[in-house]
Structures are given as C-alpha cells and as structure tokens.
C-alpha cells in the first residue's frame, strides 16, 4: 500500500469534484431534508426512524451515489485504464477514490445530524453500526459503478437502491399488513436493523448489518473481476 499514490488520486478527485456541478447538489440533499424535518418536529426530539431516514438518504445519495458516478465516469471515459496501467494497485485506486466520498459523506451527515439533534446516535454501538453501514453503501456504490458502463446508467440503478436501502424506514408508512412478508423482509435491511439497534441495543443487529456489508464487498469483487475480463 502506497500512501503517495492514494493521496495523488484523492487530490485529483477533490479537484475534479469542485469542477463537477453534477455532483454538487447531492451533499446538500440530507441537510435540506434535516432542516425540513426539524421544522416539522416543533423543537421536540425527532423519532429514531426520521434520523435514520436522513442517514439513509446521506449514505445512498452521497456515499453510494458519488462512488457509483465516479467509478462509472472513470470507466466510461476510459481514464480508469490509465490508473490500472500505472503502478497503483486496484486497492490503492479504490481507497484513493473513496476518500472524497468519505469526506463529503461525513461532512454532510454531521451537519444534518447537528440540525436534527445527534443525541440518539451518541453511543458506541450506534457509532460502530453507522461505520459498518457506511461501508455497505460505499461498496454498493463501487460495485454498481464498475457494473454499469456509463454515468447515465447509474441513475437507473441509483433510484431503486435509494428507495430500497436509503428510504427503508418509509416502508412502514406504506400501510402493509402487520406481519406481512414484505415487512419481514424489509425488517432485515440494514437501516431497519440500525433502528432496532437503537431500540434494544442488541449486537445481533450489528451482526446483520455486517453481513450486508460483506455481501456488498463480495458484489464489488465480482464486478471488479468482470471488468478485468472484458477489457
């Protein structure tokens, strides 16, 4: 692992981000929503599911969304080949490219949480869970970015992923029958598990989120192998 190479990619992406108006809006989205919800809450503490809704929006729009678009663009414009033909290893490239996303994710998330009240998340278990959950979305984004061939195609994947994994807490409001199959499935989704963690504090929820993250890593790895084969 070479720190110089990782930081070179990070610097490049940071400069590129400041010039890419397409990406500028995304980190603002959670902040706007946070303002909106905290106004509705009349100064009372917001329920956990609203807080996790914002977490879900941040992670799906900023974390997964950025990674997807940045990887897809490198592939579409064929600049990824310049990186892979350089001494940089694939791991170095992934880490370098993840840094801008990480920075923006946490800047956006922390501002949004400060607006809404960060209290419910200020405990070790929630923090650990949030970090593991971050990696789930990060790898999901990298995987999809390697999977699709153009930036345009990322939007087609982004919407369903945002709804499934980002807006999971909203499913409850869709009026499914109590105990229905759909609700049971959604209850195992990472954000739902995080809400449960906040309710009962059981480590098992962190375990399930970790499994999702491992799944996302495996997905990214498969997509990576695939890109190597069709070059």
């Amino acid at each position: 692992m070479n720190v110089n190479r990782i930081s070179a990619i990070f610097e490049k992406d940071l400069k590129d981000f400041t010039k890419n108006s397409m990406l500028f809006f995304m980190p603002l989205l959670p902040i706007i929503l946070a303002v909106f919800y905290s106004r509705m809450g009349d100064g009372e503490d917001l329920p956990l599911f609203v807080i996790y809704l914002i977490v879900g929006v941040t992670y799906s729009a900023v974390t997964a969304g950025f990674m997807m678009m940045m990887m897809a663009e490198e592939r579409e414009k064929n600049t990824l080949r310049g990186l892979t033909l350089s001494p940089a290893s694939f791991i170095e490239i992934i880490i370098g490219k993840s840094l801008v996303t990480t920075l923006l994710t946490f800047a956006s998330l922390i501002i949004a949480l400060l607006i809404m009240g960060i209290g419910p998340l200020l405990n070790a278990k929630a923090m650990i869970g949030l970090i593991i959950l971050f990696f789930f979305f990060l790898f999901l984004g990298i995987g999809v970015g390697l999977f699709v061939k153009t930036v345009g195609m990322t939007t087609a994947y982004m919407m369903p992923l945002m709804f499934l994994f980002g807006f999971t807490p909203m499913v409850e409001s869709l009026q499914f029958e109590e105990g229905s199959m759909v609700l049971k499935i959604f209850a195992t989704f990472p954000i739902s598990q995080m809400i449960k963690l906040g309710e009962d504090g059981s480590w098992s929820h962190i375990g399930i989120v970790s499994l999702w993250t491992l799944g996302a890593i495996a997905f990214t790895y498969i997509c990576y192998i695939r890109t190597r084969k069709d070059s």
Binding site: N4, A8, I9, E11, L83, S86, P87
Partner: peptide
C-alpha cells in the same frame, strides 16, 4: 501531476 505522483 497525478501521473507524476502515481509513478513517484
């Protein structure tokens, strides 16, 4: 600059 740094 990027490539200078990648190749050290």
């Amino acid at each position: 600059k990027l490539f200078c740094k990648l190749y050290e």
